[in-house]
C-alpha cells in the first residue's frame, strides 16, 4: 500500500467514524423532539446537566466522592491482593485454598449481592461502598499477582539468594521490580472494573456519590440526570485513565528499563 493510499484510508475511516457519531447525536436529537423529556431528553440538556455535575458545588461533591472511593478501593485491593498472592506462595495448601476456594467464590459472587449484604452489615456509608468494590476487585488483583509470582525468573531469584541472605533485600530489589508489569496490569484491570461497579455499589449502600444521584433521579423520573450521570462516569473514567493510570504505567515501564 502506498503512503497516499494509506492516508486516504485513514481519512475515510475518520470521516466514517465521525459521521457515525454525528448521525447518532442527530438521530438522538431528532427523536427527543417528538418524545417527552421524561423518556428521552435532548442531547443539549443532557450535556448541560453533565457539565453541571462537575461545576455545580452541590453536584460535583457527588462526583468527587465517587472518584475518591474508586481510587481508595483500587489501592486497597492491590495491596491486599499482593499480600494474598505472596501468602499463597508460602505453602502448597494456602495456594490451594486461595486458588480453588477463595478465588472461585469471589469471582462468582455478584456485586449486587455484596451491595445488599454490605448495606445490612455496615449501613449506608463509604465503608459499605468500598467493601463491595474491594470484594469485587480482589480476585482480579490476586490472579494478576499470582500469575506474576508464577512467572518469576527462578534463576534470577536463586542468583540473588547466592549474593545475599537477606530475604528482605531480595524481595525489594528483585521480586518487587519483576512483579511491576503484573502490578500495572492489575491496576489497569481493577481501575476499569471498579468504575463499572461503582454505580451498583453506591446504589444501595451510600448516601452520596453518583450512584445515589442516579437512583434519586430515576425515582423522580428525571431521565436527563440519569443520562448525565452515565456520561459523567464515562468522562471521569477516561480522565483518570489518561491523567493517572497511563502516566503511572509509563513511569513504571521507564523505571524498569533503567540500568
Amino acid at each position: 500500500m502506498t503512503a497516499r493510499a494509506r492516508r486516504s484510508g485513514w481519512l475515510g475511516q475518520h470521516a466514517a467514524a465521525e459521521g457515525l457519531v454525528m448521525l447518532a447525536v442527530l438521530g438522538w436529537w431528532w427523536m427527543s423532539n417528538s418524545l417527552s423529556a421524561m423518556v428521552l431528553p435532548s442531547p443539549v440538556s443532557v450535556l448541560k446537566r453533565t457539565f453541571d455535575l462537575f461545576v455545580d458545588p452541590e453536584l460535583s461533591r457527588h462526583a468527587l466522592v465517587t472518584f475518591l472511593r474508586v481510587a481508595g478501593s483500587v489501592f486497597i485491593s492491590l495491596v491486599v491482593g499482593l499480600a494474598l498472592a505472596l501468602l499463597a506462595r508460602r505453602a502448597q495448601w494456602i495456594d490451594a485454598i486461595v486458588r480453588d476456594r477463595i478465588l472461585v467464590a469471589l469471582n462468582a459472587l455478584p456485586s449486587v449481592g455484596w451491595a445488599i449484604l454490605a448495606l445490612i452489615w455496615f449501613k449506608a456509608s463509604t465503608l459499605s461502598v468500598m467493601f463491595v468494590q474491594v470484594m469485587i476487585l480482589l480476585p482480579f488483583a490476586v490472579t494478576n499477582f499470582m500469575e506474576g509470582l508464577r512467572n518469576l525468573d527462578a534463576e534470577v531469584v536463586e542468583m540473588a539468594h547466592s549474593f545475599t541472605r537477606r530475604r528482605r533485600a531480595v524481595f525489594a530489589k528483585i521480586t518487587l521490580p519483576m512483579m511491576l508489569p503484573y502490578g500495572v496490569a492489575a491496576l489497569r484491570t481493577s481501575y476499569g472494573i471498579c468504575w463499572k461497579i461503582a454505580l451498583v455499589a453506591e446504589l444501595f449502600g451510600a448516601q452520596s456519590g453518583l450512584g445515589q444521584l442516579m437512583l434519586r433521579a430515576q425515582a423522580a423520573a428525571d431521565a436527563t440526570t440519569v443520562l448525565a450521570t452515565c456520561f459523567a462516569i464515562v468522562v471521569l473514567f477516561a480522565a483518570g485513565q489518561k491523567l493517572v493510570i497511563d502516566p503511572i504505567a509509563r513511569a513504571m515501564r521507564a523505571d524498569l528499563h533503567q540500568p
Partner: peptide, 19 residues
C-alpha cells in the same frame, strides 16, 4: 475500522451498565 474500534466499542464499553 475506526468507527468500530475507536468510537462504538469504547462507548458501549465505558457506558455504565446500571445506566
Amino acid at each position: 475500522v475506526i468507527m468500530v474500534d475507536g468510537r462504538f466499542t469504547p462507548f458501549v464499553n465505558s457506558f455504565p451498565g446500571i445506566g
